[in-house]
Design a protein around this nucleic acid. Sequence first.
DNA 1: CAGTGAGCGAGCTTCCGCTTGACTT
Length: 705
Amino acid sequence: MPAKNKTSLIIVESPTKARTISSFLGKGYTVLSSYGHVRDLPTNKFDPKTRFGIDINNNFEPQYVIPAKAKENLSRLQKAAKKAGAIILASDEDREGESIAWHLIQALNLETWNMKHEIEDKKHVSSSKFYAPRVERIVFHEITKPAIEQALTHPRSINMDLVNAQQARRVLDRLAGYELSQFLWHKIKYGLSAGRVQSAALRLLCEREQQINAFKQTQYYTISAKLQKLQKTKPKLQIPNEFTAELNRINNEPITEPGILEKQKADDIVTDLTRADFSVAGVAKKNVARSPLAPFTTSTLQQDAWNKLHCSSKQTMLLAQQLYEQGLITYMRTDSTSLSYGSVVKARKLISEQFGTAYVPETFITYKTRSRMAQEAHEAIRPTDPFQTPETFSAQGDAKQHKLYALIWSRFIACQMAKAILAQTSVTICAQSQKNAYELKTNGQYVVFDGFLRVWKINQKETILPDLAKNDQLKATAVTAEEHFTQPPARYNDASLVKTLEQLGIGRPSTYASIMNTIINRMYVERTAARSLQPTPLGILVNDLVVTHFYDIVDYQFTAQIEQDFDTIAQGKKIWHEVIKAFYEPFHKNIELKEKQVSRREATERPSEQVCDKCGHPMVVKWGKYGQFLACSNYPACSNIKKIAQPKTELDMPCPVCGSIQGGKVVVRKTKARKRIFYGCSRWPTCNFASWKKPEEQNEEKMTK
DNA sequence: CAGTGAGCGAGCTTCCGCTTGACTT
């Protein structure tokens, strides 16, 4: 019988979480962490029979090993387990968490201990030398004292269906990733990689790049009029009498997107409009309620930190981790927008105290998690104590940390505040010239009640129009045609890529930040000076190959389908290795086929526009040790080669430091370490001018080493 | 800063998702 005075050992995934829980529970409990997964497929040595650490002919049986990194911590857990009266596995309630609990049982040899649910292998009964403590599984979704206490009274057994869904995920990623990567080694270069997630991300970037390359810029014009109301009485102070309206229709024909294409036509309209009579054709007024945004998940935090604080996903997660470790925010890797009851109660109290009861909504506001793939093991990202306002919190000198906290705090408080009310006015104006009838439009908007906007500012344009009514006569003080150019689609950056990946159900909160790193480290992608993500020639080559021959892997539908399969495994309705078999057999056949069919040459050579100046054959783009180069297609008969002109690095711009005196020019360079683009001086090292941004915009901060 | 290439196929080191530090640029 277990001794009464023995403590219970609780194992969670994160050491910070362990510390917090320990402080709730006090004596009687030891809380330790697993530091994530404790077992995994082997990385280097494999037996050819159990390819990649998976026994393909034996129902894809995985050959798990304990990574060197996990060994030390596991022996610590083992020691604590032997002393404990009960072992409580409290990893997260999702696929990976359930699997961690199961792996802990395996790695700590707990399976012969009296696991509450069943002991399959009755032959190995634990030796009588030491008694077998209870082994239990508990789950909770928020780190609060009542939630933990509640969980402790409701232990359950391991859900093997959920574990099997994770095994299926793991095995599929290994098989697809390793076989595809090796295909690339054979056809392009050793050390390259491909996988379900990184290849889909690369495809997004490459397709966007194609759209940008195919984009043809067009010029167009929009026409607007500055108008004044002809007043009989004096206008009220503070309300401007002048406003601007944009031309919308000509003789009842709407102007097609993007606008008027010919300059002559635009000029003619301006001339004609200048002489027209303007009057108000209609006024529509309405009040619109605007709801606050849901509290942060990992994905939306990264997006906002990028847009508002200019932090990369990686830096955002680093800062969030620091805040989490200080106990200031809840867990930062989450896909859930749910909030603990207590946190909402506190938020409402704070809102009422600081802003008044008008800002407190009648009921709690709950947010449905949008992502279909969400597993919701955690809460949304929020301050652990809403009364720790950004003003009261000192960031110990770290300004960015403080800013990120302020962002998280505001988003959370705002999400429990009342809706904002906006008054919107839409005015239609007609203008009649001798020849034509024109229609113009303008919109006004102002805030009637700010609600959550008090805390969470949104680009909320306020346009106040004069008091207008139908048939009011107007006077045009100016009619102008403005020239515009259509813009190509923007390249992805951290924020927009993470957003799209999440929408497609590709990747998880714990991996979003590392996806960018992977494809940059593989040199598939580079960061531009504007910090957006641009595929390199190598990235385009790899993507071409994967898309052409292994479309399934980068098919956005594929991830959705396979996720559904994992869910059915988790529900116990499908057998995991049968799902894997159905995927792997055709996939592997295709790999074998393409290994034979696709030649190295076909994989890497691309036609070019150039002609060989020695023999007249067309030149082709080839892939060598040092990147791309032009070679004669008549090789080996003709061995003519040429360099591919590198994009010009020296800009036609004088160096802001020495340009006027010594004639230095601004040069685009890349840092050795991270290959980030910066601007330097052509006379370096004599002149050490350097800047992250293009110098013409402003004198930017000097680079630090 | 110049230099890069075929094909047999041995031998490299590749996947994704959980977690933190220990490591360079």
